[in-house]
Design a protein around this nucleic acid. Sequence first.
DNA 1: CGCGAGTTTGAGGCTGTTCAAAGAGGGTGG
DNA 2: CCACCCTCTTTGAACAGCCTCAAACTCGCG
Lengths: 219, 219
Amino acid sequence: MAEAELDRLLTRATMRRIEIGEAVFEQGQKATRFFLLLHGRLKVAQVTPAGQQIIVRVVHPGDLFGFAQALQREDYPGTPIAAAESVVMSWPNEVWGSIVEQNPHLAVNAMRTIGQRLQEAHTRIREMSTEEVERRVAHAVLRLVEQAGRHDRDGVHVDFPLSRQDVAELTGTTLHTVSRLFSAWESQGIVKGGRQKLLVRDKSRLQALADGSTRSNSD
Amino acid sequence: MAEAELDRLLTRATMRRIEIGEAVFEQGQKATRFFLLLHGRLKVAQVTPAGQQIIVRVVHPGDLFGFAQALQREDYPGTPIAAAESVVMSWPNEVWGSIVEQNPHLAVNAMRTIGQRLQEAHTRIREMSTEEVERRVAHAVLRLVEQAGRHDRDGVHVDFPLSRQDVAELTGTTLHTVSRLFSAWESQGIVKGGRQKLLVRDKSRLQALADGSTRSNSD
DNA sequence: CGCGAGTTTGAGGCTGTTCAAAGAGGGTGG
DNA sequence: CCACCCTCTTTGAACAGCCTCAAACTCGCG
């Protein structure tokens, strides 16, 4: 992309800071802008008619989100909520059109991103169809640590506040079950919990649980 | 698109007939072509490491499929299997590139399609997270009837051979549970089953089950 | 007519949910 | 600086929905 063009792009961008718990926009709202997460972490939630909530995905710094319009949608399909203090950049939809026209390459790129997401969604569907809760949770934790891990001499931390409830909503179970699992894992030295904290001490053993090696170690 | 261009496109296309049970290509195979279903019906399956199978989606006539390369994937993520005698058209991947370059509009369109699929995937995830089996199966049947319904004076038929096992793999349950549900529904006059057949007699009552009106009618 | 794939149905058990209640961490205001 | 409160977490007990195992049945085709 030409530098002049990049400049023009940045000129039209708006920055905004999002407090913990605050939503960038609301599910169902008319989609007028698209966004880029610069800093922080967002959980994209969807609410069912019955009022239950699930987390569709986690947005990491550098990810585009809320580009509903690129998918020809009128409204935003979910609500991105700040899990940590965050900073987002956004553009009006019109800009997207001109970008794509002038840089077909970029459209291809965006498509790859969406393709990856579709892939992830199918993976999650497969896991929910075929795996029992413990393995699903193990997978989810591994993914979180992969995407948002901060290394440390004790292991890898999930680098943003994450409650048991959040993990439950990511894996389609209840916070009670997640809590029980974490307790069991902690007593085996695999993880270490804390209030909205999670530290993975032994990634390989967690991986073993995720892969379904039926037996845990030590009788 | 210019007619000359369309011609050129059709010239490079290959047609192929797929017998019931036959696969168009195999999961994991290197993606060299992309496809359009002209006639028939395909179930896209994914196999887990443990050998379990799930149905990721159903391909209907007019749908593009297997365009992994557009998503920058090397290989096909699933295996499309003919549920009915089918006819597919296919092109080498290179063609896709030239189409997109010459018709950015088309890329946008493809993106919308993928966006819809992502949407569907998220809906399915939400259902699997929050709904119990009966409602999930009801939703799946309604979708099938919507996308592949053939009307009739008794109701709406699913217009391709569909086993209980298939429905189970679509909804993340077992064929036993599906069979029991269908039996129960049949005795209430909501559906009528048959060997790889399904007839929905009372769509509104099925919708009520899907929406979770806890109580059935009668008594 | 017999075989095989698909379907039905029963019984029992397990995983994970629901309901309930108590326990801790950490921020805030007095 | 301490006490309080709110939210998040832990843990127990009982229940239930669904799966697993098992076996019989039936439709349709060769």
